[in-house]
C-alpha cells in the first residue's frame, strides 16, 4: 500500500474538454456507419465488375429487356437536386431559419419519394427480372439495395421533418439534421456511381 495520498483529479465539468473538440459524436457515428455502407456496396460492385469482366462483349440485358437511359437520367437529376435541397436545409438551420429548414427538408423528402416511385416505375417496364441471368441479378441487386437505402433515408427525412415542424432544432442544436444530410449525400453519391457504371460505362 502506498503511504502518501495519491493525487487525484476531479472529473471535468460538462461542456468542456472532450466533447467540444472535433466533430460531434453523433456525426462521428454517422460517418463510420457510412464507411461500412460504402464497403457493403463495394462488395456488390465487386460482384458486378467480376461478372461484367467475365462476360465482356456479351454484357447486356436479357432478351426482350432494355435499359431505360432517359428515365435513369431523370432519376439522377431528381436525386442530385435533392442533395442540393438537403444542403440548403442544413444551411438554413445553421443560421436559425426554421421555416427554411422545414421547406427544404420537405422538398428533399418529396424528391426522394419521386425517385423511389420512378425507380419502381422503371422496374415495372424493364422486361427482365432478378432471376433472368447474371445481368438481371446484378442489376436488380445493386439498384434494389440502393433503393432500400433511399427508403431508409426517406424515413430519416420524415422524422427530421416532423421534428422540424415541432420546432425542435436550433442553430446550436441540429446535429441530427447534419447527420441525415450526410447520409443523404452518401445515397446520392452511390447512385451517381451506379448510374455511371450501369448506364454509361455499360
Amino acid at each position: 500500500m502506498t503511504t502518501a495520498e495519491p493525487q487525484r483529479v476531479e472529473l471535468p465539468p460538462p461542456g468542456r474538454g472532450r466533447h467540444e473538440a472535433g466533430l460531434p459524436t453523433p456525426l462521428v457515428g454517422m460517418l463510420l456507419f457510412i464507411a461500412s455502407e460504402v464497403m457493403f456496396f463495394g462488395g456488390l460492385f465487386a460482384a458486378y465488375f467480376n461478372a461484367r469482366a467475365a462476360h465482356a462483349g456479351a454484357w447486356h440485358p436479357p432478351e426482350g429487356g432494355e435499359l431505360d437511359m432517359p428515365l435513369a437520367a431523370v432519376l439522377t437529376a431528381i436525386l442530385v437536386s435533392s442533395s442540393f435541397t438537403m444542403q440548403f436545409g442544413v444551411a438554413a438551420i445553421r443560421r436559425g431559419d426554421q421555416r427554411g429548414l422545414r421547406m427544404w427538408v420537405g422538398l428533399t423528402l418529396v424528391l426522394g419519394v419521386l425517385f423511389l416511385l420512378g425507380q419502381l416505375y422503371d422496374y415495372s417496364r424493364l422486361g427482365f427480372g432478378i432471376g433472368d441471368g447474371i445481368f438481371g441479378t446484378t442489376f436488380y441487386t445493386l439498384t434494389g439495395f440502393h433503393g432500400a437505402h433511399v427508403f431508409g433515408g426517406a424515413v430519416g427525412l420524415t422524422i427530421m421533418l416532423a421534428r422540424a415542424l415541432q420546432g425542435q432544432f436550433s442553430t446550436a442544436n441540429h446535429v441530427a439534421v447534419e447527420a441525415v444530410s450526410i447520409y443523404w449525400h452518401f445515397v446520392d453519391v452511390v447512385w451517381i456511381a451506379l448510374f455511371t457504371t450501369i448506364y454509361i460505362l455499360r
Partner: peptide
C-alpha cells in the same frame, strides 16, 4: 426504431436544456 429515435431525442433535449440552463 421510431420509438428509439423519439426516446433518444427526448433524452438529448433534456440533457441539452440542462446545459443551456447552465
Amino acid at each position: 426504431i421510431f420509438a428509439w429515435v423519439r426516446a433518444a431525442g427526448r433524452e438529448w433535449r433534456e440533457s441539452e436544456h440542462a446545459a443551456d440552463d447552465d
